[in-house]
């Protein structure tokens, strides 16, 4: 089970939590200056640290869509899908930890968990980080902190983020006033899967921006506080939206459910809009036939490369739309 098909805390608003550390080894050039033998030596050093309980994937053995599917599931970054150097993904599904070896930095270690789980993700990641720190000569400077390929990450070299589902704050345009406030306190938010500026899927990623001069704990504490406030605001805005016009809200959410349940062709873009409506409908109790758990990994499983992986070969756009609609129909009818 992974983050995308497991129930998490506050998952009516927080889809997932992810924390990532960037680490480098002192004796090796950073990946942008590393040659193939160097990358192989680096991989060998790192692989020795994560033995039992860890799975190693040689990225060069994967097809393009298999690698892209890992990025769709957020196990790896889009940049890690292809590259000229040997690359490894070392992961432990039970820990929720995924380590990219030879990305922009030697190690990009992340813990990704369902729902709101910043503290837990941090604790788990520290365990893996301790293992790396004990066994490897990690590049560190007392003033600059962890040394990274890009100076923007110096210091704690940590990016903690939560994926938020904010349909009501989006529709009431209250997010617009939130954006500038966040940057003032060292946080950043951006839309995900949005087409243009409309953020059709109403999904956002909120993360820390500052890495030097703030500790990991303080950074996470601040993020936690802000996310709690956003959760409260979003829930209040949902109730207000519903109270304004209960029939219209019910109709919109149930129409989305109807379309998803019976359509024969479904593009990603249309899905994300309708998916936002059924998630909202479920949280307001307007679609009693469904639960958030029942949706499971729907959002991830219908992504283009993951559809290809499940089909066993790379498939074109029309076939994807057909298979996507079929998969959605099966998922929703199984739960109704």
């Amino acid at each position: 089970m992974s983050w995308y098909n497991t129930k998490g805390r506050d998952d009516d608003v927080v889809i997932s939590t992810r924390i990532r550390f960037a680490r480098n080894l002192s004796g090796f050039p950073f990946p942008s200056k590393l040659d193939e033998p160097g990358a192989r030596a680096l991989i060998e050093r790192v692989s020795g640290v994560f033995g039992e309980g860890w799975t190693v994937v040689d990225m060069t053995n994967l097809s393009r869509f298999e690698a892209a599917s890992l990025a769709e599931k957020h196990f790896i970054s889009p940049d890690f899908v292809s590259g000229s150097l040997p690359r490894r993904l070392i992961y432990s599904e039970v820990r929720g930890i995924y380590i990219m070896v030879c990305e922009e930095d030697h190690l990009r270690m992340q813990c990704i968990l369902p729902g709101m789980a910043l503290n837990e993700a941090y604790e788990r990641l520290c365990g893996a980080d301790d293992a790396a720190n004990n066994a490897l000569d990690i590049a560190y400077d007392a003033e600059l902190g962890f040394l990274t390929s890009c100076p923007t990450n110096l210091g704690i070299a940590m990016r903690a983020s939560v994926m938020l589902f904010l349909p009501a704050l989006t529709r009431t345009r209250r997010l617009n006033s939130l954006f500038p406030q966040l940057s003032k306190i060292g946080l950043t938010i951006r839309g995900l899967y949005g087409e243009g500026s409309d953020f059709d899927g109403c999904l956002y990623q909120l993360s820390n921006q500052v890495t030097l001069g703030i500790s990991e704990e303080d950074s996470i504490r601040k993020l936690n506080e802000v996310v709690r406030k956003i959760i409260e605001s979003e829930r209040a805005a949902r109730n207000a939206l519903y109270s304004d016009n209960p029939d219209a809200m019910t109709d919109r959410c149930r129409r989305a459910y109807g379309t998803l349940r019976y359509a024969s062709l479904m593009s990603s873009g249309e899905f994300m809009k309708l998916y936002a409506d059924i998630r909202l409908g479920i949280s307001l109790g307007l679609i009693p036939e469904l639960t958030l758990e029942a949706l499971g990994g729907l959002m991830t499983d219908i992504q283009p490369a993951t559809l290809s992986v499940n089909a066993g070969c790379e498939i074109g756009e029309h076939e994807r739309d057909r298979r996507r609609a079929e998969y959605i129909r099966e998922t929703l009818s199984a739960t109704a």
Binding site: P78, L192, Q209
Partner: peptide, 9 residues
């Protein structure tokens, strides 16, 4: 970028 295309990138 995607979920990962945050300020890290």
């Amino acid at each position: 970028g995607g979920f990962f295309g945050d300020p890290f990138g």
